[in-house]
Design a protein around this nucleic acid. Structure first.
Lengths: 293, 293
DNA sequence: TTGCTCCTCACGTCACGTGAGGTGGC
DNA sequence: TTGCTCCTCACGTCACGTGAGGTGGC
């Protein structure tokens, strides 16, 4: 009664194309129960159908094949289901992402280019608590959302209060390679000692006390979702480049109104700060405003 | 005042990695305004920033680069926006698809394998109106949704009424290659003459009058979403293979309760009919029932 | 002059898809 | 015996990513 299924039969009962099944065999995701030694024909067991259905669903959700393999090789059903459910959670976040991307595209098509107001600013060197990590472009808002609570907690633990707006440093590499070391920080009045403890305590949520170096900045205010930030980068970066103002150092963002404070993306306020080389005027008049339409 | 942007600067204002920009140059999606003849350095114009932003958003939505290129090369803004909006509509359908895939995976993990009731059936050759097309696996439900209204319209136009449940024929190739010629049909009492007219009238919604050949079938009822159909295929196909019953001809589906009749996917009813070779019992007792758990 | 930015070229990756050319099973 | 199914290579595709090795600009 126990019969094998040929690759064609298995294809029909799993809805996986034959070429795909051969590929899955090659990479070890769905391995036939037996191979006919004479003909080389693949023979699939009826008990492999359920597993193949699972593979098809996971691939429909774009789970990488390597990950699919570890899921279906998981010995206990518990671990397997946990892996799948965590991937589902990731997927659902990604779906929300895609919907934001659609909204962002709509916005780009409809919204006119805003007039740009650029402020020149000379920031002093400032102590801060900070956390750094090598982050991918797409993951940065998630990482920030996880980081700032840690920073505020570290400040509170140190018996201090924030001395300014929280921000982050993005090196050129972050944009040019799509991944780089990002430093999120919250300014403090003085160098915090407590932060050194938490540095030793845990390598994961590693919070440090550092100095954010002073520099000359060209600053523009971005109103709206982080997904739209490239537009302000475009306007400000073009403005800076057209005037040959660019200086060394990472680009900064200051988060004036954060997702913690509002649920409406339109109410978010972010300053984009482009490093510029010092100019003689800046020495005497550190806060100048220039406008462009 | 008009200045060029180097690839690094352009990368920062567009949030596109340098390697990606070079690739886009190579394939002609974002071509630098000028190339320094001495150094080979790419020079981007400030007016290219907006277009690059658009490219980034379209790629975030996984639009193929070739299509992105035609969009940004579209001379009139009208045509461009139409192309984008139609892609957005496609995307939103795909997002809905992905959410269904998540639901389908959840269902697979939670639902137990139902007991399978297999009915043997000998269908006579039957006249029908039909429409055929080479369809991809993923597009089939959409194609069917567009097709059945045409078929019912053709029957009404011919002054006839449907003589049975609508269905479709799926050749092995459809599953084994992932694409194949599908024939959707609605039975009629007699061969419809009018269908010949509509055949001449339009090559698009080409509706034909054909005979659906009689055959022996093993039939199982599928309750629920089309996305879950593979499970019934798995049970029924395994059942047929284990008993070496398989015969020639396409697999059929009969749509007893369709999405037109209910909005709840759980209420959908589809018969999956596997062609089997004739058996002596079937000659005398065409309708037998077998049950399996 | 040093270090940084930029260049090309060739190859790798991921998940298949596409023939070509040939053999086994009913 | 014929036609169908199945086999294995080898190469193609898509959208980049990854070095290697080298040069130009401030």
């Amino acid at each position: 009664m126990q019969r094998w299924l040929s690759i064609g039969e298995f294809s029909k009962v799993t809805h996986l194309p034959v070429k795909t099944l051969r590929h899955y065999h090659e990479v070890g995701v769905v391995v036939p129960a037996a191979i006919d030694p004479a003909s080389g024909y693949r023979r699939y067991g009826t008990d492999q159908v359920g597993s193949a259905h699972l593979v098809r669903r996971l691939r429909n959700l774009d789970m990488p094949l390597a990950e699919v393999r570890t899921v279906i090789e998981a010995p206990e059903e518990q671990a397997r289901n946990r892996a799948i459910l965590s991937y589902l959670a990731r997927m659902e976040r990604q779906l929300a992402q895609a919907q934001l991307a659609v909204a962002s595209l709509r916005a780009l098509l409809e919204a006119p280019t805003d007039s740009l107001v650029v402020e020149y600013r000379l920031t002093p060197t400032q102590p801060a608590v900070a956390r750094r990590a090598v982050v991918e472009g797409a993951a940065v808002s998630e990482w920030c959302a996880a980081t700032y609570p840690l920073l505020y907690a570290a400040i509170a633990e140190g018996g201090a209060v924030p001395a300014g707006i929280g921000g982050a440093l993005y090196p050129s590499e972050f944009f040019e390679k799509g991944v780089g070391e990002v430093i999120a920080f919250v300014p403090t009045a003085d160098r915090l000692a407590v932060a050194e403890d938490s540095r030793d305590a845990s390598r994961h949520g590693l919070v440090e006390a550092i100095d954010i170096p002073g520099t000359n900045l060209a600053v523009a205010l971005h109103c709206g979702s982080f997904d739209e930030l490239d537009r302000t980068y475009g306007s400000l970066g073009t403005y800076v480049a057209a005037r040959s103002l660019a200086g060394p150092g990472p680009i900064r963002e200051y988060y004036l109104v954060t997702p913690d404070e509002t649920d409406d993306p339109d109410e978010l306020r972010t300053e984009v700060a482009w490093p510029i080389r010092p100019r003689s005027e800046d020495q005497t008049q550190p806060n100048t405003k220039g406008a462009m339409t």
